[in-house]
């Protein structure tokens, strides 16, 4: 039936015109490939096309978020109360820990000031939701729902509650792409938390494994060692947990030991990641640092007081 119908749609296109168009488009693709591989002039183009793909991502994400919404709204009161009390307990614990941390931070700043060392910068953190995970299994890329409108920048570090997840490689207007630390093309400067031994953790293409290929046979590393970011690459702030060493194989005739580590973050389970904005440390005057630290502490104390007051009122009512 299709062949009988002699309408324009079904006639064969002019062969030479087709060949010409193909050669033209192929040439254009190769040009784009070369430019994109060498330079980054095409970021604007990517951003523009990425904005048009955004509605598709939202649509794809819709059933999952609807399901989550349904689950959220239909949880029973009892479950909510249980969860609430659990979270309250957790909050108390973390607050207690944070108090100690604030004091330590102030002390650290003071001591570094005495040593005239550059104080560590602090960081601003924002939670963003993962919209999709890489479609290509050999490239571990995720898309998150924050873009240049929210101040995301190229190379920004992404962490989750338990460790480093990856870094931003491409920023769109409303969403951006990040590469995971397990991507075979990703390498991350790390140090062993126990002794400060510096090395590089390379992704393996497997979500549950990182490789440390540059450690000599006599390096002081063993199973169970925690690897943290060293901050040397410039992309990641120092001190975030990355992975735990899970196997060390030393073959005497090989120059390097075969060391693998298990990422601390659950790379294939995360739904939210935190984006980190480093704030420049104030290293102008010694006093300034100490002052701000004290100010922060005062603020925190005042906040606490404000929070405690209504709670006390409630208990007295009962």
């Amino acid at each position: 039936m299709a062949a009988v119908k002699s309408d324009n749609q079904h006639r064969a296109p002019n062969a030479s015109a087709l060949g010409f168009r193909f050669l033209l488009l192929a040439g254009l693709s190769i040009l784009l490939l070369v430019i994109d591989n060498r330079e980054n002039y095409l970021d604007g183009v990517r951003k523009a096309i990425g904005a048009s793909v955004h509605p598709l991502r939202v649509l794809v994400d819709a059933p999952i978020s609807t399901w989550r919404w349904i689950v959220d709204t239909t949880t029973s009161r009892n479950e909510l109360r249980l969860e609430n009390s659990r979270l309250q307990a957790e909050r108390l614990l973390t607050q207690a820990r944070l108090q100690k941390y604030a004091a330590l931070e102030a002390e650290n700043a003071r001591l570094r000031a005495l040593l005239e060392a550059t104080p560590h910068g602090s960081e601003r953190i924002r939670v963003s939701e993962i919209m999709s995970v890489s479609a290509n299994p050999f490239r571990h890329v995720i898309v998150v729902d924050k873009g240049s409108r929210d101040g995301v920048f190229d190379g920004q570090a992404m962490v989750d509650a338990s460790g480093v997840v990856g870094q931003v490689i491409e920023v769109g207007l409303l969403s951006s792409q990040g590469i995971l630390i397990s991507d075979p093309d990703h390498a991350l400067p790390v140090e062993v938390n126990r002794n400060g031994l510096r090395t590089i953790a390379v992704g393996s293409g497997d979500f549950a494994r990182l490789e440390l290929p540059f450690l000599p046979n006599n390096a002081d590393i063993k199973e169970g060692d925690l690897l943290v970011t060293s901050g040397l690459g410039g992309a990641f702030p120092a001190g975030y947990p990355v992975a735990v060493v899970d196997s060390v194989t030393r073959v005497p005739q090989e120059p390097f030991a075969a060391v693998t580590a298990k990422p601390a973050a659950a790379l294939n389970q995360v739904r939210e990641v935190m984006l980190i904005w480093p704030t420049e440390p104030k290293n102008t005057a010694v006093d300034a640092t100490v002052d701000t630290a004290v100010d922060n502490k005062d603020d925190a104390a005042r906040d606490d007081a404000r929070e405690i007051a209504p709670a006390a009122a409630e208990t007295s009512d009962e």
Binding site: N8, Q9, H10, R11, A12, P13, L18, R21, F22, L25, A26, L28, S29, I30, L31, L32, L33, I35, D36, N37, L42, V45, R46, I49, G50, S52, V53, L56, R57, S134, A135, N136, R139, V141, I169, E170, Q177
Partner: peptide
């Protein structure tokens, strides 16, 4: 083939490249 041939394929390929974060022009080619 008259309406949907190499031109359509190229445009869709570029969109795939952006959506998957591959080199621009790879899927298009």
């Amino acid at each position: 083939p008259r309406s949907y041939s190499v031109g359509t394929a190229w445009v869709v390929g570029i969109i795939v490249d952006v959506a998957h974060g591959t080199l621009l022009g790879q899927h298009a080619l």
